[in-house]
Structures are given as C-alpha cells and as structure tokens.
Design a protein around this nucleic acid. Sequence first.
RNA 1: CGGGAUAUGGCGUAGUCCGGUUAGCGCGCCUGCUUUGGGAGCAGGAGAUCGCCUGUUCGAAUCAGGCUAUCCCGACCA
Length: 490
Amino acid sequence: MAKDFVKRSENYSEWYNELVVRADLAENSAVRGCMVIKPYGYAIWEKMQRALDDMFKATGHQNAYFPLFIPKSFLSREAEHVEGFAKECAVVTHHRLMNAPDGSGVVVDPNARLEEELIVRPTSETIIWSTYKNWIKSYRDLPILCNQWANVVRWEMRTRMFLRTAEFLWQEGHTAHATREEAETEARRMLDVYADFAENWMAVPVIRGVKSPNERFAGALDTYCIEAMMQDGKALQAGTSHFLGQNFAKAFEVQFLNKANQLEYVWATSWGVSTRLMGALIMTHSDDNGLVLPPKLAPIQVAIVPICKNDEQMAELDAHIAPLTESLKAKGLTVKYDNRTEYKPGWKFNEYEFKGVPVRLAIGPRDLENGTCEVCRRDTLEKITMPLDGIADHVLQLMDEIQHSLLQRAKDFRAANTRPVDTWEQFQTEIEKGGFLLCHWDGTTETEEKIKELTKATIRCIPYDAPAEEGKCVFSGKPSHRRVIFARAY
RNA sequence: CGGGAUAUGGCGUAGUCCGGUUAGCGCGCCUGCUUUGGGAGCAGGAGAUCGCCUGUUCGAAUCAGGCUAUCCCGACCA
C-alpha cells in the first residue's frame, strides 16, 4: 500500500493531482497554468505520439509545421471561430526588451510595438487556411491531408495538469477536399482512428458520437467526438474531429477549379487529440496504489528486482538475470533491471507499482536454488512464483492479458455506470451519482442550457449507435427520436 | 473578475493569538558502518536573509499598513 497516498474514494481530485506528481509524470512550473512534463510522463506521451502518427500515415496523411504566431486579423476572418477563442488568447504586442531606466532590470521597449499584434495559436485553422489558399488552384491539388504536432495556448482561468493547462501539446490534422461527402467521410474516419487508438492502445473504451450544436467547435458544421468515463463517473472528451464545411474556405477565399472548369469552395476538416489523453489514461486505470499503465504505452514494461544479502550474491544474480533480460528484450519488451543497492527490494516494489509498470519480476536466493522467479502483475497485484524456464513467453502473454483486462475492466465500469433516465425527478437524483445518463432530449439548445444551469450536466454526445426510439424529452416532455448522453464533464 | 484562505530549509509543517536565547520536528539530501523476499537501522553532517516593502518597538517569524504570489470556491473552458 502506498504510504501517505490519498484514496480515490476520499478525494478524487487530490488523488489525481498527487498521483501525477508522485508517479513522476509532471509538475507545476514557474509559469502559472503551465506544467513541466517530466521524462517518465513524456515517455508515455511519446509512445502515444508514435502510435497515432503511424495511424495517420497509414491513412495517407503527412506531417507539416505551421507558425506559432497568427496575425490578429486572421483570427477574425471567421466570425464564430474568433468568438469561440477570443476570451483565451495570449497576444504578442512587442518584439524587444530594454534595460529599465532606473536599473531595476529589464522592461518592454515601448518603441518596439508590433504593427499588427500576433496571437499565440489556440488552434491553427486560420493560419493553415491562409496557406492552403496558395496551395489549392485545381481539383488536382486535392485532397490535402496534413497533420501537425504542436503546442497551443489557451489562457485558462483554472488549470489541472494534463486535463487543462494554459499551454498543451497536441496534434491537429487539417484536410481540404473537393466534395462535401469526402470531407465528412474524412472527419468520421479520423474519429474512428481516435476510437481505435483509445481502445486498443490506451485500453480506454470510448463512445463515438456527434456534439450538440451547443458543444460544437467554433466554426464547424459538425463536431464528432469520443467520450470516455473516468473512475469518478465524470465524462472526458478524449478527441474531436470537425467537419468544417466551407466556412474557412469562404473566410480565406480558398477556391478550386473543378473538372467542369467552375470555381468551387473547398471543403474542410480538422481533428485533434492532446496531452489531455494522459489525463484519460491516468483516470481510467490507476488505483489507490498509484498509476496503472496498459502495456502498450508503458515506458517500462517489465521491472526486474534482485534480492540478495551481499555483493557476491548480487554478482551471482547479475549473471543469472542477464540472459533473462536478454530473452525478454528479444521478445520486444522494454525491461529495466534494477540492481541498485541504495534501495531495498521493498522500496523498489512500491516504486514500480506506483509508476504503473505492468509486470515486476523478483528473483532472490530461494529462486536461484529452485530455478524460479516471482511474477507480479500491476493491474491485479497478483503474485505467482514460476519456473524461469519459458518465462519470457509467459510475460509476453501476460502483457496481452493485462492490456485486454484493463479494457474489459473499464468497459464493465462504464456499463455499470450508464443507465437510462426518463423523468426529470430521476435525472436530478441520478446525475448526483455520476456516470452517463441516457435520456431523451427535444433537440433544443434552450433545454440543454437549462439542464446545464440546473445540474451542471451537459450533453456529451449523440452516440452514433443510438437506436431510433420514440420518447419524451427528460426536461421539456417534447417528442424525441433517440437518447443522448448526459453527464458531468471535465 | 467576484468570495474565502494561505505564505517558515527541496517537500510537509510547529512556533504567530500573548514580541524576548542559537526558529523546533518529520520526510528528503550528504558521510560512515550494519542491512536487503513489501517503503531498513544507528551515528554524524549540510541546508532558512521566516513571501516583499514600510512602520511600531530597546528588540519583530510574531503587532500595524501596503504590495506580491499561490491555493480553494464561483464565472469560462479541449
């Protein structure tokens, strides 16, 4: 049991904050609202990046890089877009510092004011579409399937590590298409990529759906999303994909000549996932003993801890364990053999447990005699002693088992906390218990906002697979044709 | 931007009400010895202009005024 570590049931958000710091994932920085992602946390993010990047490439996308700064005028080209982001933009107004006249340090040089202020990108639609205008002349230039890995800044009032920080890392895909249908297909296809990644790499089950107009991205015609349920029953939007229609093409005058030699506006999509996925990963699997990582994203998959009484024994263990390490590595596993003498085995057990290492092997004098090894899996904390012979295959299989079992466990949790609700009275009590409420909704923004105001619950999405079903809106009683998901969200 | 709170070695804190030796303790850190199957023990050691400024006083971590920063609760949000 982790010492001095608050339990999820006692204070979930404190548990989360402490876990992030103590598992060495990230820490707060000198800059308000910005975090430092530490090497161990960044290693997880790199694994996510790698997997996603491969999936983007496999679906025909290429990486590119666009500027951090956006001319102020660009942002205001699309009316809804600017309205959505105006309140949280960092603005560059000057380009030079000078020594303070009174010697008190350095000040902004008032003579170095920029002609046009620059916005630190909150997202890159505008700068990218101003560029695409130059790239697109003919139907032969389409589609353009670009992605960029970048940092963005949204000046948030209240921040939480990974879940909402003023600066965060993400990828943003921006595509341009000749037809509406093709763009819509692209937006949905990338959502499927995200869902695939969430479930098969992160072991986080997600619900695919469409956002209500109220929750839609500023400037989009449709926003598709994947929604996950955290262990406290709150929803977390884990990824979004937008069908932007011709809004940005019109704002930036991006037209192409079609086969009939007629000018048409280009159709657009954008889609992104961010370091917020780290938050989803943490809050889906981790427990009161610390972080729990799915094997596919764990920077260390196997930790090996030797147990011994003296130097000679350690030397013997080193020699004995070396081939074991090699055989695990030969299976493609990431292995850490920890024979530091400054820490005792018990300390190491706790350390690797807290950091979510999926499998731990311990080998001591008794094992040397018996040709065995203690195998402990992080997700269940189950320990078994087994012969060293064939251990690499066993561990490899265990990785698979853990990966699947984490997903299954999360699915079971979600299922246990998802239920239909048909009356307003019931809604008010049920929403307090957390989880997803499947409810009929009359389709109006007024109803959605009223419900949000009264209960802090929002429509997370209208699931793709919501079956047609006649019913009455849980709030207004007006007719509805399918259920949507209500929940409190991060 | 409203409402509340806090600020003391790297971290967590005692002391503040009621001013008075060298600012105490735990964790961590350094050195040495003994240890190692679930966060080791002992001994020694380093480390703090008590958030900042001004004032009151013989004397301020402690009292007063101002400032700054951070955290929590709201409004806002991927």
